[in-house]
Amino acid sequence: MTRRSAFVTLAPLVFVLSGTFQYIGAGVAVGLFDRMPAVSIAWSRIAIAAVVLVLLLRPWRRHWTRRTWWRAAAFGAVLAGMNIAFYLALEHLPLGTAVAVEFIGPVAVGALTGRGWRERLAIALAAVGVVMIVGVTLDIGGADAALGLAWILLAAGGWAGYIMLGRRVATPRPGEPSGLESLSVSMAVGALLYAPFGLPGMVTGDAPPMADPGLLALLLVVAVFSSVLPYGIDQLVLRHAPTARFSVLLSVFPATALLVGVVMLGEVPTLIEVLGLIAVSAAIALTSQREPAHLETVVPPE
């Protein structure tokens, strides 16, 4: 077994780790909603993660062409927008439900780019599982849930764009900045673009978050757990896994989010939701075989 095929085989376990990191950070963020605006929490997550990655990777040492720069900038705009929409949705929806609805984005990407019957069946199972999870919580109804649904559908579109652009960023041509270096620039661009929306909530009010060391420490935890670690892992997986398989592997996230919701937020799933999680797990199992050689392309066609 080659190193790449071993990596792809272990990808489901890697995604469990990534999802756990991401939704522990989201659980911490939900606890901050009564202390600062959700949009500022989402923005600070991106801004702090950008500082961390830029200092670690020092992307200014690499040669940036117009193409690599605009690719990273577009990725950053989509990534930051997706995160802000997701956090605004969390003001109105439980964590597990929000993640499940957002999964419409990866399902759409997988349906459009998948090739084999196992992958198609896996996408269908994942979609059924997500619908089962979502159907329970949307029975809550009301304008509040509808607003949350609107935000999370916007985040789902952003997630689809994140996958497609992320694949390009993760597979550079020889001599171009690496995926992680591009990710650091992307986050910096995203932080700058959305600063007019997120920054005011950090510096205004009787007790501005920027002046609270304890709150800043919690925001650092959110940034590292929800951005630095999972998005770094995404870049590694996207380099080796085809886009369709990456989309199906993301279906582990609803299960992870529900488990984190139970432990951190007391959001206990129903029997229907558990059955949905089983369907999602079956989808992941269907994609655990080695990828055909023709899908293991490192550099996509331009």
Rank of each mutant, 00 (worst) to 15 (best):
M1F: 05
T2P: 13
R4E: 15
L13F: 13
V14A: 14
F15N: 12
T20H: 00
G25H: 08
G27Q: 07
V28D: 09
A29I: 05
G31T: 10
L32A: 08
L32N: 09
F33M: 13
F33V: 11
M36P: 10
A38L: 06
V39E: 14
I41K: 08
I41T: 11
L57Q: 11
H63V: 14
R66W: 09
W70N: 14
A72I: 04
Y87Q: 12
A108Y: 00
A108N: 03
R115V: 12
R118C: 04
E119A: 13
A124K: 02
A124E: 01
A127I: 05
V131M: 12
G135V: 01
G142F: 03
G142Q: 05
A146L: 15
L147K: 13
I152V: 15
L154F: 06
R167C: 03
R173S: 12
R173Q: 14
P177A: 08
S178N: 10
S184D: 04
V189E: 10
G190F: 06
L192F: 07
L193H: 00
L193W: 00
L193T: 01
Y194A: 13
A195V: 09
A195M: 06
M202N: 03
M210G: 01
D212K: 01
P213Y: 01
P213T: 09
P213Q: 07
L218G: 03
V222G: 10
F225N: 04
L229R: 03
Y231F: 15
H240Q: 12
A241N: 02
S247P: 06
P254Q: 02
A255V: 15
T256V: 15
L259Y: 00
V263G: 11
L265H: 03
E267L: 04
V268Q: 08
V268K: 01
P269H: 05
I272T: 15
V274L: 15
A279Q: 08
V280S: 12
L286I: 05
T287R: 04
Q289D: 12
H294E: 15
P300G: 09
